[in-house]
């Protein structure tokens, strides 16, 4: 059985850039938009790359800044300097 990992982000200026970066890096991602927030689901695994987010935002981005925009997650987390991973069944 494939389970979805999920992340929910605020609909802010940074949030929109992060969502765009996630869509670019995760072809299987499904995006649902709600008032004030966006939920992204993806089978088994989802990656957020620092460089992709920086490209979208046009500035340097420390992945810990995600703390300001994240609303909720579902999945095991692994963060280092370059990417944050969400995954099930590892």
């Amino acid at each position: 059985m494939t389970s979805n990992v999920s992340i929910t982000l605020q609909n802010t200026d940074d949030g929109r850039g992060i969502v765009a970066a996630i869509i670019a890096d995760n072809p299987e991602a499904v995006v649902s938009t709600y008032p004030a927030m966006t939920k992204i689901d993806c089978p088994s695994r989802l990656i957020m790359n620092k460089t992709s987010i920086e490209q979208q935002l046009g500035r340097e981005f420390d992945l810990h800044e995600l703390n300001l925009t994240m609303v909720s997650i579902s999945g095991n987390v692994d963060e280092d300097d370059d990417r944050l991973l969400l995954m099930w069944n590892v």
Binding site: Y34, P35, A36, V71
Partner: peptide, 26 residues
Amino acid sequence: PFMSGAAYNGDMATVTFGFSAQSDES
């Protein structure tokens, strides 16, 4: 969903504290 609902009902203050709290929640 409740905080998204607060936003939808025009309560900017509550959605902001809600999501501010929820950002710690992750």
